[in-house]
Simulated scan of single mutants.
Amino acid sequence: MDKNQLGVQYMQEGKWEEAAKIFNELIEENPVDPIAYINFGNVLSAVGDDDKALKFYERAIQLDDSAAVAYYSAGNIYFSNEQLDQAKKMFETAMKKGLETSDNYFMLGLTLVQMEQGKFALPYLQRSVELSEDDAEARFQYGLCLAQLELIDEAIVQLEKCVELDSEHSDAFYNIGVCYAFKENGAKALEMFNLALEIQPDHLLAGHAKKLIEKNQ
């Protein structure tokens, strides 16, 4: 196992100090290796040092402006800090540099949803699901985006696939209920709200929606 693989293994095990030590050694041995800077940045991001992590991603990009993963990793930091314009730019650049992964499409779609640009988010969320069919959260966000655009039948299909993959996803059951309420199918909506509440008894939105349906029956 080479040092990079060892460092990544330490990260997977949550051994951040050991991982940082390995990547620091790699940078000292080869100061022009962008991968070591990206990995060190990932360690720093994992322990909450976002500012320093961004500097390492920037250094990786200076060394190799086609290092797509560096843009993606920087995008995640900007997204988590609600710097959505910067996040969007990074995810788009990662895609242009060849990073066609489910995660990158998902994060770009999610960023556009947060920016209230659901129509533009939709194809990226759809592509994310196509590349990772068993990702329940990708299905959920894709379904949610479809619902927000009032593509209700298509939304139900995706949200139902989400709960097939994750039977404990209370928000998905709640949103299926909302879709059925939109279609004026009160009985089916109530069934879904009850399922959401079985999983999460303190689900306030499902509780409120259930009361509304029962009141109007």
Rank of each mutant, 00 (worst) to 15 (best):
D202L: 07
E191P: 03
V163D: 02
A147H: 05
F182H: 13
E150R: 08
A138I: 01
L165S: 05
N185R: 12
K183Y: 02
I199D: 05
H203S: 11
S167I: 04
E116G: 00
F140T: 09
E150L: 02
E137L: 12
S128W: 04
N194Q: 15
L197Q: 12
N194H: 14
E130N: 11
C162D: 11
L149T: 06
E184T: 05
I213S: 05
L108R: 08
I176D: 06
D153K: 14
C145E: 04
E137Y: 05
L195I: 03
F120A: 14
L125R: 01
L159Q: 06
C162N: 11
A121K: 09
S132E: 10
S128Q: 10
P201G: 13
F182W: 12
Y142D: 03
L149R: 07
R139N: 12
Q117A: 13
E198T: 15
Y180K: 09
I176T: 10
V113F: 02
F173H: 14
E198K: 15
L190T: 06
K161G: 03
Y124E: 00
V129T: 11
Q158P: 08
Y174V: 04
L112A: 03
D153L: 10
C162E: 07
E191H: 11
E168H: 07
Q200C: 13
G118W: 04
A189P: 04
A121S: 10
F193W: 09
A147S: 13
E184I: 01
E214S: 14
D202F: 02
L131G: 11
F173A: 00
P201W: 09
M192C: 13
V178S: 07
G186L: 15
L195E: 14
E154T: 02
E214M: 15
A181F: 02
Q141F: 09
D171F: 08
Q114I: 01
A209F: 02
L159S: 05
G177K: 11
K215Q: 15
Y180S: 01
L212W: 00
D134S: 11
E154S: 12
L112Y: 01
M192D: 01
E154A: 15
L197W: 09
S170W: 07
L165H: 05
A136C: 06
A187T: 07
A155W: 01
F193K: 13
Y124Q: 07
T111S: 05
L204I: 07
A147G: 06
I199H: 05
E154W: 00
L149V: 01
Y124K: 06
E133Q: 15
N194D: 15
Q117R: 15
K161E: 15
K161Y: 11
L190R: 15
I156F: 01
N185C: 04
F182E: 13
Q158N: 13
Q200R: 12
A206T: 11
S167K: 11
I176F: 02
E116R: 09
F193Q: 09
F182P: 00
D171M: 14
D171T: 08
E164Q: 14
N216L: 12
Q200T: 14
N194R: 14
F173R: 04
C145T: 15
L144R: 07
I176Q: 05
S132I: 00
E198H: 04
I199E: 05
N216P: 00
